[in-house]
Nucleic acid binder design. Structure first.
Length: 750
DNA sequence: AGCACGCCGACT
DNA sequence: GTCGGCGTGCTC
């Protein structure tokens, strides 16, 4: 008997066995047709052994799981002599291209690597409803070549419209012609219009690599030569394109894409971007360069478009796909190049469900296809720089283009020597610089990565700190809305008059600065100045963001107080001063990557100041000026900063010189989660080259009503960390609703 | 992930 | 006396 192992897109532990019926004719052929209603006959007719005879791995099939019929993918087919357990039959095979072999290998690899079930990973591959069905057909109208019918002005208008815009639906044609739908229907009946079936999901236009790109600067041209030589070697060729904002990284990888499409017109290219960077402006750049709109894949893509993109990708007809991290799981059959733009961005890390790092999986995905991979960033991750330094990745450096922004002079303000007034946050030196800038009619950007007015409200009478009811986080005061808000869960309440704990009236005080409080302070310092706030509260929609950015660009704002939303991607010609209000904020918390992230953010913020003709200045306020982050930042010496970081990490065996994983344990209450941790702690497999720390209380110790603990695991390079974690979890039988989630290569240590 | 079975509160 | 809440357990 033939047996098929079928993987279902759900978190089952493995593929399940089914029998492949090799009967001649209809599997259900015994039923007399006369007794079966017509609709069912049609459904049953599909279920013949016809498609099952040649069943092969990758085929999409339907089979019963439990008592519902589900879609699955054939993982293997083999012949078995004796089958002791009766198997359910494979019901039918879908008429669609098989899931490519490389996609299946990728699913298996990812599942093992991130310690998820293969079915859960397959579910990420099959995230396009109905993409396996043929494209829906709609009925569209064309003017008939020749027909005799009574002519009226309305009918002539319809015919003219149909000739100008062939292929519209009845309703659209009526609207376009400016007549009622009845006229169109009448004309169809009279023979003046013919109805044709049209596929609703149209293929993507092929990109045209022969179009002339922009003229490249000598630096860009040199970079293109290096990339071209490297990709020309063929096979898996990782490349880091490392260049400041405005150095033209995009043009460089555009040339790589054009080269590839000229050599292999059938090649498929995946360009990954952080979700928020997938703007219409970016898509338009691709369209302008290649004369065709790329396929897009991100959260906001509606179901119908998702279905179209998925189907075009599996058929190999979508050439350039521009997507967020989940686009990695699209069923490319002929993927030849993967670009990960802004590769350092933390948005590549998926933190829910199947936890993975999109950047790292992209590199593996390219490797599996023997494809090129380009990582691009103005502030590459330390891991990536280390790969470049060791020669695993080719390293292409792009200097700033002449005429582009000049990096500003960066000065530290030692807050110990130059403190702000009591209850204020801006030091006299920064204030003086702002006054001078305002007098010159130039702009200032103050950066503070804290929304709202104050990050903490506490009671002076009893010391109570106001916390969010469903998480162990402090409530942030938003003074403009008069509410206390939890930034983690979205919970909010009006600011109470009395302390909810001891009921003392008027004892609540706001502690620490947020952007709203800084803006208030600026209004006192610079009376009459136009002060605005840029945060997710004031720019909650793209339109609001565009309006604020527009005002800043046009010089209608004197001082912009912004969170990290203000840190990247804008060009403010009149901005000459950047003040970093609390540069130490990002360094607290003992996070492994704190220094790196602070560096990256500060250099982006500082890079906002000063454009072509006006030199800029950045003032960075810190209580800890001896921290090497700041010395290197002041000298704008990235290499020495990263060399220092790398030495520290190497000494401790931290990534990329060792590897990390976390085990997040959660349960209904503290006693339950402690019990689960005790069980897990007793079951740690003995392995050389692995250290297990914890369990520790995470910064967010209660999330969505679940109490949490966290084990951190450090492994030497060359140790199979995934296998260790999976074994550890599998050998522990947790009680009740306790859960243990594995996070391989954790990025955040909250 | 579904969908079942299985034990404790507000209704005809 | 039932209908139904969602807590755990199984699916080849």
């Amino acid at each position: 008997m033939r047996r098929a192992r079928i993987l279902f897109p759900m978190p089952l532990p493995e593929a399940f066995d089914y029998e492949v019926p090799d009967l001649e004719g209809d599997l259900f052929g015994d039923a007399p047709l006369g007794d079966v209603p017509l609709g069912e006959v049609r459904a049953e007719n599909r279920r013949t052994s016809e498609g099952l005879a040649a069943l092969a791995p990758g085929d999409f099939v339907r089979a019963e799981l439990g008592r519902t019929e589900r879609l699955g993918v054939v993982w293997s087919v083999d012949q078995v002599a004796g089958q002791n357990r009766p198997l359910k039959p494979v019901l039918d095979r879908l008429d669609a291209p098989p899931l490519p072999e490389v996609s299946r290998r990728f699913v298996t690899w990812v599942a093992r690597y991130v310690c998820a079930s293969p079915g859960a990973v397959l579910r990420m591959v099959l995230r396009a409803p109905d993409a396996l069905e043929p494209s829906p057909v709609s009925h569209v109208l064309h003017a008939a070549d020749e027909a005799v019918f009574k002519s009226t002005p309305a009918r002539e208008a319809v015919l003219a419209a149909a000739r100008a815009r062939p292929g519209l639906s009845q309703a659209d044609l009526a609207r376009f012609a400016g007549v009622s739908a009845g006229v169109v229907a009448g004309l169809v009946k009279a023979g003046g219009l013919v109805t044709r079936a049209a596929m609703r999901d149209l293929p993507f236009e092929a990109p045209d690599p022969s179009r002339q790109g922009p003229t490249l600067s000598p630096d860009q041209a040199a970079a293109v030569r290096v990339v071209r030589a490297k990709l020309g070697e063929g096979g898996f060729t990782p490349i880091l394109i490392d260049g400041v904002t405005g150095s033209g990284k995009t043009e460089v990888y555009f040339e790589a894409i054009a080269d590839l499409l000229r050599a292999e017109p059938e090649a498929q290219i995946l360009v990954l971007l952080p979700e928020i960077a997938l703007t219409e402006a970016v898509i338009a750049r691709f369209e302008a360069r290649f004369g065709a709109r790329p396929a897009g894949w991100h959260t906001d893509v509606p179901d119908a478009e998702r279905r179209r993109v998925w189907r075009e990708v599996i058929h190999g007809r979508a050439r350039i796909v521009l997507g967020a991290r989940s686009a990695l799981f699209l069923p490319f059959a002929n993927l030849r190049l993967v670009v990960v733009d802004e590769e350092h961005d933390t948005a590549y890390k998926q933190e829910e469900g199947v936890i993975y790092n999109g950047r790292d999986l992209a590199v593996m995905r390219a490797k599996m296809s023997g494809a090129g991979v380009i990582l691009a960033s103005a502030t590459p991750a330390l891991e990536t720089l280390e790969n470049a330094r060791s020669g695993r990745y080719a390293h292409v450096r792009l200097a700033a283009r002449p005429g582009a922004a000049v990096m500003p002079e960066i000065d530290l303000i030692d807050l110990r020597a130059d403190p702000p007034d009591e209850g204020r946050w801006l030091s006299p030196r920064l204030i003086a610089a702002m006054q001078q800038t305002y007098k010159n009619a130039d702009q200032t950007l103050l950066y503070l990565n804290r929304r709202g007015f104050a990050p903490l409200v506490l009671c002076r009478a009893c010391g109570e700190k106001l916390k969010s009811p469903h998480a162990e986080t402090w409530l942030t005061e938003h003074r403009y809305s008069g509410r206390l808000v939890c930034h983690l869960t979205g919970y909010s309440m009006p600011r109470p008059a009395a302390c909810p704990h001891c009921h003392a009236e008027g004892a609540l005080v706001s502690v620490g600065p947020g952007v709203e409080r800084i803006a208030d302070e600026v209004r006192v310092i610079l009376p009459g100045a136009r002060v605005e706030i840029l945060s997710s509260d004031t720019a909650s929609t793209p339109a609001m963001l565009r309006a604020l950015i527009g005002d800043m660009e046009a010089g209608r704002i004197d001082v912009l107080v912004g969170t990290q939303m203000a840190a990247k991607g804008h060009n403010f010609p009149h901005l000459t001063l950047v003040g970093v209000v609390d540069a130490d904020a990002g360094l607290k918390g003992g996070d492994l990557r704190a220094g790196e992230r602070t560096w990256s953010l500060l250099s982006q913020v500082a890079g906002r100041a000063g454009r072509a003709e006006q030199p800029g200045r950045a003032l960075v306020q810190t209580w800890d000026p001896d921290n090497p982050v700041f010395a290197a930042l002041k000298d704008q010496d990235r290499d020495s900063f990263f060399a220092l970081e790398a030495d520290q990490r190497a000494a401790l065996g931290q990534p990329p010189f060792g590897r990390l994983a976390a085990l997040i344990v959660s349960a209904a209450g503290d006693p339950e989660v402690d019990a689960a941790c005790a069980l897990l702690g007793a079951a740690i497999p003995k392995t050389d080259g692995i250290d297990v720390f914890g369990p520790a209380l995470p910064q967010i110790s209660v999330l969505r009503g679940r109490h949490r603990r966290r084990f951190l695991v450090r492994a030497d390079r060359g140790v199979d960390l995934s296998a260790f974690m999976a074994t550890w979890r599998a050998r522990t039988r947790l009680k009740g609703a306790a859960r243990a989630v594995i996070d391989i290569d954790p990025q955040s240590f909250l």
